[in-house]
Amino acid sequence: MSERKRGWKTLPKGAVPYKSSKDYQTGDWGVAKPIIDRTRCSKCTLCHFFCPEGAITVRVDGYTEVNYDYCKGCGVCANECPVKCIKMEMKK
């Protein structure tokens, strides 16, 4: 974050954003984080479709995985998991 902010001479023309929001991590927004119990997960992938952040990806083995760098801890995934295998855990 020590990077010097760009001025008008070097900023891209036309006010085009030059950074991906992947560089802006929202993982510290939430107070809780989802923990998936894979022993009970049915690999239905629904949590991937419900996550507002796109923070849940489907691994090659079919299980889903949370990217905590971006998870905002909203709890939608835990609320919607059909087998209730996602638990929201308070962050320390």
């Binding site: 891209p12 023309k13 036309g14 006010a15 085009v16 954003p17 950074k19």
Partner: peptide, 23 residues
């Protein structure tokens, strides 16, 4: 010529070189 997240690009809406306009 402008610059998007992936480097220098032409300033236009083009699926091959996506940029965001009007942030």
């Amino acid at each position: 010529k402008t610059e998007g997240p992936k480097g220098e690009v032409e300033f236009k809406l083009d699926p091959d070189t996506p940029i965001s306009i009007g942030p």
